[in-house]
Design a protein around this nucleic acid. Structure first.
Length: 692
DNA sequence: CAGCTTTGTCATCTC
DNA sequence: GTGAGATGACAAAGC
């Protein structure tokens, strides 16, 4: 027998409806918070309870503080106590046990309570068995029915993903909460508990994100096989479940509550436990949407919340709004049929791949699963996520550090220094765990940027809101904005969070040596220049090569076409200027080198030419000397053959030969030739002097 | 560790 | 007057 009791009250006294369904001997108590239920379901339940169910009772909150057992058939049934505190024992128990998951819905509360109480009730046993392996025996007291249904406490689904289950479980109750948690306190509380259990949200995120879907499907199948093998009685019940499955398959997701109840009524009376067996584990399994492992109430419940927060943030931050919930659709949800609402808000196949309900999932589980894990959890109103976002913005020091670091490099100029007074302590601030859990790996600028650098440095075009934040680079919102982007990227590519270095490490650069920084850059940004890192930090949606080598017209049109901040434009222009100047310097040096080489070649050529001319000169001089010698010889030969008037040989030392203008040759005494030669040479000198 | 080369960058000049 | 390119000068990194 199940008791689905609301765990809270709105203070004004919510009307809690206990619907006792007595159909064909099957007693199903549904204590429903009518104001949490969607109107169609609420109306339908009211209709059913008021018209058909004799056991239907509009009861005040039970004496057990929200967990009373108004069913007289229950062995531990307690009479309702109208004076009981609405908030009740359930919440206190949950808090006492330090469950990091504050149930918002009655289903959540019921699940938590079932595990916590270790009730021998079949439902508790089932759920306890589901959680037993990781809950350290909290649910180990489950009755035989539950254990049989699940093949004992060793739910194979529970074992792999519950590292803290047995040993850590007892630490959880150490944090009783004295005050009613508000919406924003839930995330923090769960993170506190997670910290108390030594289980970091980061680990949870990793564990959850990596193996959640796979484990679900595999373990679900494993459960099926294990149950089939270990529990013979399950075989008998399986026929009913098979019928249920068939029914489910036939009705698909369009089951109404009436269909559900008809199906439930078809159960044999003695199969109440069977229903529980089939119901509860699947209920827990269904809640495994958010609580993957059997230690869900220690880890995965919070993970569920965290996960939804993440998704929500991702949706809120998704620029293309691909995953953004349509607000219109969301507001219109309550007006839609119950099951359709589930199916349209969440795709079960996506949520639980492999758990296509073909195993043993009764329709009710399917519905409750959807209702619990998403729609009801979606009741975590948007303020929760907003507050978480705000907390993440406030506590997460984030990337502005890196941005400022990049711009604050000693050799940096261009007026790009952000001069951001980043708060490095926020990175190591324990409170940032809230953000960490909400965003998965929170310290991963590199991860956010590495993928973004493919083809373009930034990888996306900032939204105006973000641009506005970026403009306020010295403002804290700048950090927040980058944190937003960080979150977004983490959720989009959190699988790339394997990049070892975190942003916090970059915070340490200013205090460390340049070698450390250089080593860091060598490790992570080995192939990134400073401008590339800058562009990456500012999410410039263009590659450096594009910026530098783009034609002027294209560059200007690009700047005008894209909505860029002044900082981005300034950076882009600086990148282009530096890139152009770098290319120019390279060209200049190349030209200079070419000039030097050409000059060296010219020198070699001139030297060779000089040698050639020298040789030619020597040859000419030699020829001249030869000609002089020949002339001298000829002169003497001629004069030796000449005779004067008396017949005597002419003395070559006293006479010389002289050619006249008419071609006649005269024998002239040397004295006259020498005086005449001197006169002509003097005339020639005067003429040359006049010319100069 | 000094010296040299390479490279990036800035300031300035030239076109 | 403006912008792009060229170039000298400087600094840092690497060898």
């Amino acid at each position: 027998m199940k008791y689905l009791k609301p765990w809270w009250s709105d203070g004004g006294g919510l009307l809690h409806l206990t619907v006792l369904l007595s159909l064909a001997g099957l007693h199903l108590d549904l204590d429903l918070d009518l104001y949490l239920l969607l109107p169609p379901l609420r109306d339908e339940l009211l209709l059913w309870g008021g018209q058909t169910s004799p056991a239907y009772a509009l009861s005040p909150f039970p004496a057990s503080g929200g967990w009373g057992r108004a069913d007289p058939l229950h062995p531990k049934g307690r009479e309702p106590d109208p004076a009981a505190e609405p908030e009740g024992q359930l919440l206190r128990e949950v808090r006492t046990l330090g469950v990091p998951f504050i149930p918002r819905t009655h289903v959540d509360a019921w699940l938590v309570h079932s595990v916590v109480a270790g009730d021998t009730d079949g439902a508790h046993g089932l759920l306890g068995a589901a959680a037993a392996s990781s809950a350290g025996g909290v649910g180990a007291s489950a009755d035989g029915g539950g254990q049989a249904a699940l093949g004992g406490g060793g739910d194979p689904r529970a074992a792999p993903s519950s590292p803290l289950a047995a040993g850590e479980e007892e630490k959880a109750p150490a944090e009783p909460t004295a005050q009613v948690p508000d919406a924003s306190g839930r995330a923090s509380q769960e993170n506190e508990v997670l910290r108390a259990t030594g289980h970091s949200p980061q680990q949870e995120e990793n564990e959850h994100s990596v193996s959640a879907q796979k484990d679900k499907s595999l373990q679900q199948q494993g459960d099926d096989e294990t149950k089939a093998a270990d529990t013979p009685e399950w075989g008998a019940e399986k026929t009913t479940d098979t019928r249920n499955e068939r029914y489910l398959n036939e009705t698909d997701t369009s089951l109404s509550l009436e269909d559900l109840l008809q199906l439930l009524s078809s159960q044999p009376e003695n199969s109440m436990e069977g229903i529980s067996l089939g119901d509860i584990p699947l209920l827990s399994g269904s809640i495994n949407d958010g609580m993957n492992s059997s230690a869900y109430y220690n880890v995965n419940c919070s993970q569920a919340v965290s996960h939804d927060v993440n998704l929500h943030e991702a949706m809120l931050l998704c620029p293309d709004s691909t995953f953004r919930r349509d607000p219109v659709g969301r507001t219109s949800q309550p007006q839609e049929p119950f099951l359709q609402l589930n199916s349209h808000t969440t795709n079960p196949a996506q949520t639980l791949p492999g758990t296509n309900l073909t195993g043993f999932l009764p329709p009710v589980d399917h519905q409750i699963r959807n209702l619990t894990s998403h729609d009801l959890l979606y009741d975590l109103d948007i303020n929760i996520f907003d507050e978480i976002n705000s907390m993440s913005l406030a506590t997460e020091g984030f990337d502005a550090m890196e941005v400022s670091h990049l711009f604050g490099e000693p050799d940096s100029d261009s007026g790009l220094s952000l001069n951001s007074s980043h708060n490095s302590t926020s990175v190591t601030n324990p409170n940032s765990c809230v953000c960490d859990s909400a965003i998965g790996s929170s310290s991963d600028l590199e991860s956010l940027s590495h993928h973004a650098l493919e083809g373009a440095v930034g990888g996306y075009y900032p939204e105006p809101s973000k641009i506005r934040h970026i403009d306020l680079s010295s403002d804290s919102t700048f950090h927040g904005d980058l944190a937003f982007q960080h979150i977004f990227h983490n959720h989009t590519y959190h699988l790339q969070s394997s990049v070892p270095e975190s942003t916090s490490e970059s915070f340490l650069w200013p205090g460390k040596s340049q070698k450390i920084k250089s080593r860091y850059l060598n490790d992570t940004d080995r192939n990134l220049s400073r401008d590339e890192r800058r562009a990456k930090a500012l999410h410039i949606p263009f590659s450096v090569d594009e910026i530098v080598h783009m034609p002027v017209d294209s560059f200007n049109s690009m700047l005008s076409r894209y909505y860029l901040t002044d900082l981005q434009v300034s950076l882009i222009r600086d990148i282009r200027r530096r890139g152009k100047n770098k290319v120019a310097a390279q060209n200049c040096r190349k030209r200079k080198l070419d000039i030097i080489l050409n000059l060296e070649d010219d020198v070699c050529n001139l030297q060779a030419k000089k040698e050639t001319l020298k040789s030619e000169r020597a040859q000419c001089n030699k020829a001249i000397n030869i000609m002089k010698q020949k002339l001298h010889d000829l002169y003497h030969d001629i004069l030796s053959r000449l005779r004067d008037d008396e017949g005597r040989p002419v003395n070559p030392n006293q006479y010389a030969l002289q050619c006249s203008h008419d071609g006649s040759i005269l024998i002239v005494p040397k004295e006259l030739v020498t005086s005449g030669y001197k006169k002509e040479t003097q005339k020639g000198k005067r003429k040359s002097e006049r010319r100069n």
